[in-house]
Design a protein around this nucleic acid. Structure first.
Length: 215
DNA sequence: GACCAGGCACATC
DNA sequence: GATGTGCATGGT
């Protein structure tokens, strides 16, 4: 068993299954992936509930909605002007190439789809991979701030390494399995919340002197 | 009041 | 290619 497999085993035993992604449909998951960029999930839930209450959580509804009206609904998620534009850009992409259907998008080969998603303005690697994994059931490992924080604190990989470097480590160390990738990323978020944000000098933080998880 | 939260694009050097 | 900055609400 390698180091990453051991960490997974430890996390699953400690935290239990996380039941991700908290979204009812692939489309809702994709919307959540954009709204949660650099944002607390609780705030995203408020924004999604606003969309639901307005009966506007659909590709068609958001597509025809003026950006400033959308901004009002997603306001709790922060960066609402930026995110309104990003949501509409993603949905235009969805409309144009997949008839507005996540199910049709799902049929596409994962590699070409990932490239296309990354070419959409407002969708970077984490958002693209979150959509691929949690909305479209593609076995792609999602790297986020917590993943980098946990791995760098345990000296497994330097915090400043690129997204693709972290992702490659998971891909090469683990069986390429949808369920595993889904659960592992969610567990890293769960444990990551217990680590303070890395700063150049943080001698006050006790977690810097401890081994927060045993591997 | 400071700090943080499941990023990304863009400007500048 | 690396580094800095704007975007913004809501909880602790």
């Amino acid at each position: 068993m390698n180091k990453l497999e051991l960490i997974y085993k430890t996390l699953l035993r400690t935290f239990g299954p996380q039941h991700w992604w908290p979204g009812e449909t692939p489309f809702e998951v994709a919307v959540g992936a954009i709204l949660t960029q650099n944002t607390n999930w609780g705030n995203v839930e408020k924004a999604i509930n606003n969309l639901k209450s307005a009966r506007s959580l659909s590709a068609k509804k958001i597509h025809v909605m003026p950006a400033n009206s959308l901004s009002v609904l997603i306001r709790p998620a922060g960066y609402f002007n930026v995110k309104a534009k990003r949501l509409k850009t993603f949905i235009s992409f969805l409309m144009k190439n997949y008839h507005g259907s996540m199910a049709i998008m799902k049929r596409e080969d994962v590699h070409s789809l990932r490239e296309k998603l990354l070419s959409v303005n407002g969708i970077g690697p984490e958002t693209a991979d979150s959509i691929l994994l949690y909305a479209l059931d593609k076995p792609v490992f999602v790297i986020d701030a917590y993943t980098k924080r946990v791995l760098s604190r345990h000296k497994i990989m330097d915090h400043d390494k690129a997204y693709e470097d972290f992702q490659e480590l998971f891909h090469s160390s683990l069986k390429r399995d949808l369920k595993l990738f889904n659960e592992y990323h969610a567990l890293l978020v769960a444990v990551g919340k217990n680590y303070c944000k890395p700063k150049p000098q943080c001698d006050k933080c006790p977690l810097n002197k401890l081994r927060p998880i045993s591997v």
